[in-house]
């Protein structure tokens, strides 16, 4: 998808789309400044998507450019080089603790950032029923403004019509789902903004498992509003 906007023309808020947010997330990831919840979901998406890896490389190149050309050299202390050289031959023990046990519930392989997150936050990763066919569990992270949860939908389950107060980022971990705007498969990152109302439905064969990071809780709309009182997703 190419955008045909004259690049000298003024860009305003109204020209911004979910695509711009997506690029911003990847740039902020490359720059190392995402809040924990977004950091985790973007890292997981990068593990699962070739397209995301390519974009990340581009934003890391931008970082390389910044380092090389926008950071005027500042002299190192006199002993710096000798000091570093003296450490080169020391044998280094890799402090790599990579747990291999998949603590994610069910028979699903999830990318490392997710297992790492569940482990470091000692999450009780267990599905809890929200309503028939839809299960969930929440993760509390060190960034209170984000709501992080996993959901698992049985095949052909429709989530009631709802809207998001803020931005909601969904990563498909297994299976697929669709809504009024498109179809999403494993590895896809879906960004919906505040004004989008949608009715997602999981795919017929496998259902779907997703990770969702949102700014604010989901609000059900229409007759489903009554659910807001009972269900806190």
């Amino acid at each position: 998808m190419t955008e045909h906007i004259n690049h000298t023309q003024e860009i305003t808020d109204k020209d911004l789309s979910a695509d711009d947010l997506y690029h911003n997330l990847l740039m902020d990831y490359a720059a190392g400044r995402l809040a924990e919840a977004q950091n985790m979901i973007i890292a997981a998406h990068i593990c699962m998507s070739g397209n995301a890896r390519q974009k990340l490389r581009q934003y890391e190149s931008l970082g390389g450019y910044m380092l090389e050309n926008e950071c005027a050299p500042v002299s190192m202390c006199a002993s710096a080089l000798d000091n570093t050289l003296s450490l080169l031959d020391q044998v280094r023990h890799e402090a790599e603790h990579k747990s291999q046990n998949n603590i994610f519930p069910g028979n699903i392989t999830v990318p490392t950032p997710i297992t790492e997150c569940l482990e470091t936050n000692r999450v009780n990763a267990k599905w809890r029923m929200l309503f028939p066919g839809l299960e969930t569990f929440k993760v509390k992270l060190n960034c209170p403004r984000h709501n992080v949860r996993f959901i698992k939908a049985a095949p052909k389950v429709k989530t009631p019509h709802h809207t998001h107060g803020g931005v909601e980022i969904t990563l498909v971990l297994d299976g697929a789902y669709e809504d009024e705007y498109g179809q999403y498969k494993r590895g896809d990152l879906v960004i919906s903004d505040e004004n989008q109302r949608h009715t997602p439905q999981s795919c017929a064969r496998r259902g779907c498992v997703c990770l969702i990071v949102s700014d604010t809780p989901v609000r059900f709309t229409g007759l489903w509003r009554i659910l807001n009182y009972f269900i806190k997703i």
């Binding site: 985790m40 890391e60 190149s61 950032p113």
Partner: peptide, 28 residues
């Protein structure tokens, strides 16, 4: 796959995150 400056930038960035931020960062 990457220019030297890009590759070294990622190492420096990770160092900065580890040392200055002291927060968990999921790096890939």
């Amino acid at each position: 796959k990457a220019a030297a400056s890009t590759w070294i930038f990622t190492i420096a960035r990770n160092k900065r995150i580890d040392a200055l931020r002291k927060k968990k960062y999921y790096s890939v």
